Amino acid sequence: MKVRDFMIKDVHTVSQDAPLSEVLELFVSKRINGAPVVDASGKLTGMISDGDILRYINPQRQTVYDMFSYVFISQPEELEEALSYKVGTPAKKIMKKNVQSASPNQDLEEALRMLAKHHFKKLPVVNNEREVVGVISRGDLLKQIAGRLNKLNNETVGI
């Protein structure tokens, strides 16, 4: 079995220059939790997930700075305050940069090993030019496997 047989071909990508507000809109409207990040020519530059976004917008706690025997205490930040200046941040500042990817012609077992080894939820699938042509996600992969198992069981039973 090959990656191309299991990958999702209708992929939602994010421009590396897209502001956080646009990424959030995409995630909510398409009900996705991650997406490949691409440059202007459509080449993969990273991945961004809902976890990356939550870690980035996490309001700062009260911080104590000791500078030359002067103590400064920053006030805790509220979520609205954090969002007010973080929504314009481009995806390239939040994304994971050194991402693993799969090829459409790669054996599915290799992609499964990458997903398991690195604890990825999604793995971008790229062609020889590093353009995103699909994505493999753990959830979709499990649905496909379960569907194939059901089909095999029904054939075995004679249904």
Rank of each mutant, 00 (worst) to 15 (best):
E81F: 05
S49L: 06
L149A: 01
P36T: 04
A35I: 02
D5M: 04
D17M: 07
A35Q: 04
E110Y: 01
K92R: 15
E77I: 05
M1P: 02
K9R: 15
V28P: 02
R4H: 13
R55C: 00
D107E: 15
K151L: 09
V71W: 08
L24G: 08
V87Y: 14
T89Y: 09
V133R: 05
L142K: 07
Y70T: 15
M47P: 08
D140K: 09
V87P: 00
R4Y: 12
L83V: 08
F27Y: 09
V126E: 04
V125W: 07
E109S: 15
S15M: 02
V23W: 09
G51E: 10
E80L: 12
S21V: 11
A111F: 10
D17T: 13
M7Y: 03
Q100E: 09
K9Q: 14
L24C: 15
L24H: 05
L26R: 07
F6L: 07
N33W: 12
G51P: 04
K97D: 02
V64M: 09
S84G: 09
T89G: 00
A40C: 02
Q100I: 12
P104K: 02
D50A: 01
E22T: 06
K117T: 12
N150E: 14
S101T: 13
E25D: 13
V14R: 02
E81R: 04
P36W: 03
H119T: 04
M67K: 09
R61A: 05
M67G: 09
L123V: 10
H118P: 05
D10W: 07
K96I: 10
T63E: 15
G147A: 06
V37H: 03
I8E: 09
D66F: 14
K122M: 13
F27R: 06
M67E: 13
N98F: 11
V3Y: 05
V125A: 01
E155D: 11
L112S: 05
G147D: 15
A102Q: 10
Y70G: 03
Q100G: 04
A146T: 06
K121L: 04
P36E: 01
